[in-house]
Write a protein that binds this DNA or RNA. Structure first.
Length: 458
DNA sequence: TCTGGGGTCCTAGGACCC
DNA sequence: TCTGGGGTCCTAGGACCC
């Protein structure tokens, strides 16, 4: 059996832990740039405000109901997530951290061997919920079922139906069949908007209907092997196992960093400063998980909501690093700036930029070396005669950078390229405020990660 | 006026390998 | 006249997840 633990409106719950006066009030948390509603308290859901609603569209409604509005505070949510995962890891043989607020639990064997001591799996699930709530303040629900897809479905019902008291255990085929009938096809894990529309057009409305389509049909209409697996999993046949997260942290196969800008940017130097900042952050994460990357992608996007802008809204460029895998920000940046140059169209207004690091590998024995001396980076070629940029990594420099920023705060020491060029018109902000930076008007304190923000109790 | 960010997995054509 | 089969890697893009 698999368990799925999922926090209830996680970001809102994190805010409430440290500011209990919001316990009974309507609360929302907004995305970066205060753009969209990404977490809603039950009171807000009852108002009919959907997940992902643009804030400007629901602002008045929220105000009318005296809702509290927060900008997102990832320092807080990340740290609360780690606490929740730590609690869970202490009580189950293995878990897979699936997202910031969800984890799959490996419960195989427990039902045969341990239940005489621990009670049924649904009792164990209740114990987990109570433990997490007591130690972190975060409310959760738990689904238990023979496949991950059914565990997700069970979790959804556990959240929806108060009479289940936060736990649903789909131990028999009768209970599974019942659960499948309760869930709309669009709410099944792996069925997004496009597939949902296609399925309802074909007369497939519930998870139960979907569980009865043929494998061939699923393959043809639901993205090949992915669709075939999905249907089998609904039938109770596990197609995917648990990928345990070692020591409670997540090792990623790709690392990215991107932002929508606070305002549209047309100056190359401003966008370069943004890309350099995002790349620095991504490289920092890469070093934190002790990996090297050998594939780099840069992308820039136009405003897809502007009716005057035609698709494609986004262009990307990917490069397999000729000088081999690295985690050195300066090496990565010299390639990133040449990719950005390739994508750049003068006179275009850009809305967002991002970088992705792929092809991650651990340093050491397995590493691919170059046969000859590393080929020069684009920056070296362009700047021939100027100061050299190394193609070989300088681990000691990066380690010092990370140590300083860890101790004195993110961005204390950074590459000069991350600084936006001074603008003639731009007396608006202080020089330390980059052109691309967005809004975050209502951010709560970093209660768990900044000494100055520590809650004081009299 | 105002519309997020960080991921996973899959597809598909072309270059290239033996 | 006639021109293979089984792979990997690279790059770009799409669907989906939370």
């Amino acid at each position: 059996m698999f368990g799925l633990v999922d926090a209830n409106n996680f970001y809102v719950s994190c805010e409430r832990v440290f500011q209990p006066r919001y316990e009974k009030r309507a609360v929302v948390v907004l995305s970066n740039n205060d753009g969209n509603v990404v977490s809603r308290s039950a009171e807000v859901k009852a108002l009919g405000i959907p997940m992902g609603a643009p804030y400007f569209e629901v602002k008045e409604l929220l105000k009318a109901h005296n809702a509290a509005v927060f900008s997102s505070n990832y320092a807080l949510y990340g740290s609360m997530s780690a606490r929740v995962m730590y609690c869970l890891a202490q009580r189950v043989p293995a878990l897979e951290i699936y997202s910031i607020d969800e984890a799959f639990l490996d419960l195989h064997g427990l039902e045969q061997h341990l239940t005489p001591y621990l009670g049924r799996l649904d009792e164990l699930a209740q114990t987990l919920r109570a433990d997490v709530k007591r130690r972190t303040g975060i409310p959760t629900c738990v689904g238990v079922a023979p496949t991950k897809t059914l565990a997700k479905l069970a979790n959804r019902l556990a959240k929806k139906l108060p009479e289940l008291d936060g736990v649903l255990y789909l131990d028999t085929t009768e209970r599974q069949a019942w659960a499948l009938r309760q869930v709309a096809v669009g709410d099944v894990w792996g069925i997004g908007r496009q597939y949902a529309a296609k399925l309802t057009a074909a007369g497939i409305d519930s998870a139960s209907d979907l569980a009865r389509v043929s494998e061939a049909w699923a393959r043809k209409h639901l993205g090949g092997v992915v669709g075939a697996r999905l249907v089998q999993e609904l039938q109770g046949q596990p197609c995917t196992g648990l990928h345990p997260s070692e020591d409670g942290t997540l090792d990623r196969q790709s690392i990215s960093c991107s932002r929508t800008f606070g305002r549209p940017l047309t100056e190359y130097s401003n966008v370069l400063a943004a890309v350099a900042t995002f790349l620095s952050r991504a490289a920092e994460k890469l070093r934190a998980q002790e990996d090297l990357a050998h594939v780099l992608t840069v992308y820039i996007s136009k405003n897809r909501f502007d009716p005057h802008v035609l698709p494609p809204y986004s262009r990307s460029a990917t490069l397999t690093l000729p000088s081999g895998p690295t985690n050195d920000t300066t090496v990565l940046l010299s390639y990133a700036s040449s990719l950005l140059r390739r994508l750049w169209e003068t006179g275009t207004s850009y809305h967002k930029a991002g970088v992705v690091l792929d092809g991650l590998e651990a340093p050491g024995n397995g590493q691919q070396l170059t046969l000859f001396s590393p080929s020069p980076t684009p920056a070296q070629r362009e700047n021939k005669g100027e100061k050299e940029i190394a193609t070989t990594s300088r681990p000691a420099l990066m380690a010092s950078l990370d140590a300083l920023n860890q101790r004195f705060g993110r961005g204390t020491v950074r590459l000069a390229t991350t600084l936006s060029a001074p603008t003639n018109s731009g007396s608006a902000g202080s020089p330390s405020r980059p052109a691309w930076e967005g809004k975050a008007q209502w951010r709560s304190p970093a209660f768990t990660t900044r000494l100055e923000d520590l809650l004081l109790v009299n």
